[in-house]
Amino acid sequence: MNVPVENYLVLAALIFAIGCAGVLTRRNFIVILMSVELMLNAVNLTFVALSRQLVSMDGQMIVFFVMTVAAAEVAVGLAIFLAIYSQRRTVNADEISLLRW
């Protein structure tokens, strides 16, 4: 299995860009959160690929923390979403302008 590390980096960059485009263009709050997950995963892939390239476990350790933070982020994000939905009956991120003036 001698795939050059660059291939993985390019793959991760593309997944990150797809996730970034999703965050910018989608209006559905849930899909925006999913796109954020995609971006986090792309970064995880970069960390693991470079961890193997540099023969160091540090990258995999950071991936461990990123996963924890991602899980916490989704839990809190969906809870906020539930609270907003019960008040406003909308999933559209454009209509949630509570903090905008």
């Binding site: 993985y8 892939l45 693991v48 995999q60 991936v63 996963m67 969906l78």
Partner: peptide, 26 residues
Amino acid sequence: SFVMLDAELIAMLQVIVYAGAIVILF
């Protein structure tokens, strides 16, 4: 991809935490 990069534990965590917990939450 993680398995192909010799990160077996991370791959397991990925399946359990992400596919098993986060997506179910979604």
